[in-house]
Design a binder for these strands. Structure first.
Lengths: 302, 302
DNA sequence: TGTCCTCATAGCTTGGGGTTATACTTTCGT
DNA sequence: ACGAAAGTATAACCCCAAGCTATGAGGACA
């Protein structure tokens, strides 16, 4: 089975017809017809029964497809990697971070770094956890910046800082004369919960469960900034990390320290396959300073 | 990157030279040289530096190779499946079982089945747990027969019978006037332990640990029949399943019921992808009868 | 310096996979 | 009932990727 056979079989099986497969593959219908026939001849069995002029997959085709699909997937990944290696450039740092870092930390770090290294270009995107790991494994980015990454094979993580959690409420809200809050203080208010798919969401929901507090959750958000904005618009209160809590925009938010030992980690991720360039290395250090600065200054204020 | 590029790059990278790659691929050296050059030209970067007439992989090649290797693996698997589908035959049942079943259960079942269906052919092999699952996923076999399979995606398991464990000792051994034994009775004797890689080994070692008994293990065996033979030759005593315990050969073995509620399961595995043929279906039922017969008759004797 | 090893180049052949044109079959609408 | 539409297969042609042999070119080493 040649590569072309695999591609054609995949397209025909997926689209259900030779004609549509030809459109998908951007070739003529007879070409697909011929390649498919050739594949069947080489395999020694039919992949489709020609019934009433249409194609119906044989049981063999059904079984084979699962494996052909896998091959296609791994081919796709490989081609991505090959392409990303082509456009690699030693004077460029490609970064992906969760949205929380995109507002202040990352811009500040890049701006400072470029003061000293004006010849270095940056590309930045905000992705969620899983996508950052995929992008690293495909060499699409050089650095990933996120909260509490799990261990992922092929990716090395470097702890930049630890941070604490804060409660966000509308600015005019008060809890008696308290200046810091516990989870149990929040029970009566509409609560915006971080989605359990994210690392902080998982951390927090476990913590809240362990405190046996039942919060009145009115919304889930995977993006911490969205949760913060919801607070600003009066939709409720939430708990987030320091970075999100202190970020610019929306003045009418009040930040309360959360009285708990629970901390999260901020880590820089790199691909273990790709040799780290000097620039990537030094920018990671710059990033560490800025993250620490952001976190420790908020601690000072807290 | 065409398939040929992938194959050639993989061969050159693995073998370290164009010449050896050509030998591996069974083509001429210039052909490999040209295809490799073409691949590099299409990719837009060198995969190997030509230094002193030899090839040295570039960092790009090092990164790419991991992914190319994956593609090769999935291709291999797919080709195996394609080949196994080609030689599939509705009049044949292909079975893999752990060695324990190969002595009596499987031969008895096949013999009986063939009395009624003399046109059905069988192919049998004995493999260990992981290999049976792989063979099923590649459609190399129709039925897997083994002890306590874990849950494997893509494979359905059908419980045929439950069985108990037995102690095997040399025939002339006695434990006072006891007729059944506990784990703690075995503490003083040289013990042949089932390897923890196998399902029964795991089950037993957990059980023994939970009883806080420290056995004097003198050997590990992954194959239960080997453990049984070791007992026959006087190397020690062991605990095995009923099937192995009752199998033919080595008369000078005594079988003792083990006084415990611990049971194992005997299951038939099928691929979820492959539609089960009528013959496969009916032979599985035949297998169930024989397994049950073997287990219940041994219970009756016990 | 000659021999051996390795990779690259040149020139030739083959066949897989592309094209267009066309025929065949089934379904569907008037 | 018949023509149009939709789908697949066949025929005749073209091109280039990838195979081959023969040979050149650069290092390593006795």
């Amino acid at each position: 089975m040649r590569l072309r056979h695999i591609e054609v079989f995949h397209a025909v099986y997926s689209s259900g017809s030779v004609t549509r497969a030809a459109e998908v593959l951007n070739v003529s219908q007879p070409s697909v017809s011929k390649v498919l026939a050739h594949a069947e001849q080489q395999l020694g069995y039919r992949l489709f029964d020609r019934v009433k002029g249409k194609l119906v997959p044989t049981p063999e085709a059904n079984q084979l497809f699962a494996h052909v699909d896998e091959v296609n997937d791994s081919l796709d990944r490989m081609r991505h990697v090959a392409e990303n290696l082509r456009t690699a450039d030693k004077g460029r740092v490609r970064i992906a971070a969760t949205p929380a870092f995109g507002i202040d930390v990352l811009p500040a770090a890049i701006a400072e770094y470029r003061e000293q290294h004006s010849d270095v270009f940056f590309s930045v995107e905000t992705l969620h956890h899983g996508e950052i790991c995929r992008a690293l494994l495909e060499s699409r980015i050089d650095i990933g910046l996120l909260f509490d990454p799990g261990v992922v094979p092929g990716i090395s993580s470097e702890l930049l800082a630890k941070g604490k959690f804060f409660v966000l409420t509308p600015a005019d809200m008060a809890f008696g004369d308290k200046t810091s809050l516990r989870v149990s203080d929040l029970a009566d208010y509409p609560f915006i919960s971080l989605d359990r798919r994210g690392p902080l969401g998982r951390l927090l929901s476990k913590h809240i469960q362990s405190k046996l507090v039942n919060l009145n959750t009115v919304a889930y958000s995977e993006t911490y900034q969205v949760a913060r904005s919801l607070v600003a618009y009066g939709a409720g209160i939430t708990i987030t990390d320091e970075i999100t809590a202190r970020s610019n925009g929306h003045e009418n938010i009040r930040i309360w320290p959360l009285d708990t030992e629970l901390t999260f980690r901020i880590s820089a991720l790199h691909s273990e396959e790709a040799p780290m360039s000097l620039i990537t290395r030094s920018f990671t250090e710059c990033l560490r300073r800025h993250v620490l600065n952001f976190v420790s200054s908020s601690r000072a204020r807290a």
